[in-house]
């Protein structure tokens, strides 16, 4: 009975803390969404912010869809994200698996070399010159290839692969399975949570791509979402005189841009959560 009570307290604590965390996260988000739905004048009349809009308008969203380059950049970002994530995940998996095998000759050296790239880089100009030399400049591939493998994600995935129980490899060896088959039929299916996690990391990396796009691409038709959104967000920060010719985006419009830009990544998340179910796969293989 004593144990039961402490268990219940434990539960109460868990729910209370989680509820608090959710509230702390949701209140400012409500602010973002509400601001995007309220005319700017109303926002100001309310003292600069709104949590529950009393008059809703979709003008800002309409403006974004009709008067800005947002819709097309959305398409570019979607393409870059889908292709980039598949490519990166593939390459990362192919590297992480051998590196997770402690028997691999030269493993330490390769890992050190990879880690080194996280700390040192040649800088903006040599990288640009390289991208120019290999002919990627001003193509979508300039947004995909120069960061195809993230050393961070690679090390994480390798670490996940390392924590797989050694027995499954022993069993596979006895089966005479080829390395390629071990990877695709055993390691990958058993590591779905980590693959999905790294996949999500890559997805967000590609979706949030900004600086590379600005640097390597100059055709406006190829600009991804964040470039357009950034223009909308940063225009007010400039003290230039452009406001004579341009109508500066209001907070309402900025918030709407933020909502549109982050919605896809948010909507994708619930589908990903499914794969975090505890021990599902280990259980599957043992049973």
């Amino acid at each position: 009975m004593v144990r039961g009570r402490s268990e219940r307290w434990f539960d109460v604590m868990v729910y209370a803390v989680l509820l608090f965390a959710a509230l702390v996260a949701v209140v400012p988000l409500m602010f973002v969404v509400s601001m995007s739905l309220t005319p700017y004048g109303e926002v100001l009349r309310n003292g600069g912010y709104v949590f529950i809009p009393n008059s809703v308008t979709f003008d800002a969203y309409q403006y974004l869809l009709e008067r800005t380059k947002l819709p097309r950049s959305f398409g570019v970002s979607a393409f870059v994200t889908v292709v980039g994530t598949s490519l990166s995940l593939m390459l990362t998996m192919l590297m992480a698996y051998p590196l997770s095998r402690r028997k691999l000759k030269g493993r330490s050296l390769i890992l050190l070399l990879i880690l080194f790239t996280m700390l040192f880089n040649g800088g903006l100009i040599p990288t640009y010159l390289l991208v120019q030399k290999v002919g990627l400049l001003n193509t979508v591939w300039a947004m995909l290839i120069p960061n195809a493998v993230s050393a961070f994600n690679l090390l994480i995935m390798k670490s996940f692969f390392e924590s797989l129980p050694e027995e499954i490899f022993e069993a596979a060896k006895i089966d005479g399975a080829k390395e390629w088959r071990i990877l695709t039929t055993i390691v990958a299916p058993l590591s779905v949570p980590s693959l999905v996690t790294i996949g999500l990391f890559y997805m967000v990396q590609y979706w949030n791509l900004y600086f590379q796009a600005v640097l390597y691409v100059q055709d406006a038709a190829l600009y991804p979402l964040q470039v357009v959104v950034r223009n909308i967000l940063m225009m007010n920060q400039s003290m230039d005189d452009i406001n004579v010719d341009v109508t500066l985006p209001t907070v309402t419009l900025q918030m709407a841009a933020v909502v549109v830009a982050s919605l896809p990544m948010i909507m994708v998340y619930p589908f990903i959560q499914k794969y975090f179910i505890k021990g599902m796969l280990i259980g599957a293989i043992k049973g």
């Binding site: 070399l113 040649g122 800088g123 100009i125 040599p126 990288t127 010159l129 195809a148």
Partner: peptide, 9 residues
């Protein structure tokens, strides 16, 4: 993409 541009240091 990582080592070749490193001459930039």
């Amino acid at each position: 993409f990582k080592y070749f541009p490193m001459y930039g240091v």
